[in-house]
């Protein structure tokens, strides 16, 4: 096993070295070649061609490949109908040239010529979806699938406030301001281990217009290692009981949670591996 893993690593390193070589990078090239004479040609009389030698055929490549780091070529496009994550009708958008050309082929967009701009000036009336910006649909999709784990203290008493939720969002790589978060009507107080892992709903307003409901659960945590709650495998793949019974109506509207794809045997193996890993971490900490 050790031999295999080592050889795999070596192969990967070798591939990384080889992939940087110019003859492999050529296949990703899209720019046109521009060539220059290494030894410039001699002067001839006006309107005459100079006599050339073999050395005048030696060329240097001036423009060879795409700029590094690779930048996608952009293109302006005028949309004729609503396109997800791109924009609204009548809007002039700068996007990747490849997607822009595809949209034009499907008649979802046109070139932004002055004639077309006059033609689609009143196209904003066709805006059926009425999103406040073009990234709203994408963020709404992400937030509605998210399960937010709010870590709270197990020792010190607290009541849930918007800034607790803000910090939990930040841990999930989503930045939400305080005024955009609305908590449930009933106050949530702790520390209370009966709350642990139960589901309630937090609403987030985007651009002060669109509202999204986010699943959220409270997890208790202490600085003392011995008093911590046991580790649960894949809590975000399992449905949880509701904290408030009023929320049953909202639960039906939300998209279903994706179940775990592992077998029971695979799961056991996975848990054993993770335990070994965690033990190792603790041991290292104790030694240090």
């Amino acid at each position: 096993m050790k031999m295999n893993s080592a050889s795999g690593k070596q192969l990967l390193q070798l591939f990384q070295v080889v992939a940087k070589r110019p003859f492999l990078q050529q296949s990703f090239r899209t720019a046109t070649y521009i060539v220059e004479r290494k030894y410039p040609a001699p002067l001839a009389k006006i309107h005459k061609y100079p006599s050339l030698r073999r050395r005048h055929q030696v060329f240097n490549t001036v423009q060879d490949k795409n700029p590094t780091p690779y930048v996608r070529p952009l293109m302006n496009v005028l949309l004729t109908e609503y396109v997800e994550n791109v924009g609204q009708p009548g809007e002039c958008v700068e996007i990747w040239a490849k997607t822009g050309r595809e949209l034009i082929l499907k008649h979802k967009a046109v070139y932004p010529t002055p004639e077309n701009k006059e033609k689609y000036r009143d196209a904003t009336a066709l805006n059926i979806m009425n999103y406040s910006s073009r990234y709203v649909k994408n963020t709404m999709d992400i937030l509605s699938k998210l399960i937010l784990f709010i870590t709270m203290n197990k020792d010190v008493p607290w009541t849930l406030e918007p800034w607790h939720v803000r910090v939990a969002f930040r841990k999930a790589h989503i930045i939400v301001p305080d005024h955009a978060i609305t908590l449930p009507k009933n106050p949530i107080k702790g520390p209370d281990l009966t709350l642990n892992g139960k589901e309630f709903y937090v609403t987030v307003t985007i651009n002060k217009t669109e509202q999204v409901i986010v699943r959220s659960r409270i997890v208790h945590w202490t600085s003392k290692v011995e008093e911590r709650l046991p580790w649960v495998p894949f809590p975000f793949k399992k449905p949880a009981p509701l904290l408030f019974e009023e929320d049953k109506v909202i639960e039906a509207q939300l998209p279903a949670i994706e179940p775990l794809k592992m077998n029971e045997d695979e799961l056991e193996d996975f848990i054993a591996k993770m335990k070994l890993k965690s033990q190792g971490k603790i041991l290292v900490k104790k030694i240090l």
Binding site: Y33, R54, V58
Partner: peptide, 24 residues
């Protein structure tokens, strides 16, 4: 665009080698 046919000098004391510049 087209194909350029020429030579490349890969070092100071090396003789030029033929090369084709072909578009993608």
């Amino acid at each position: 665009e087209g194909v350029i046919e020429g030579l490349v000098k890969k070092g100071k004391y090396r003789c030029p080698v033929p090369r084709f510049w072909v578009p993608n």
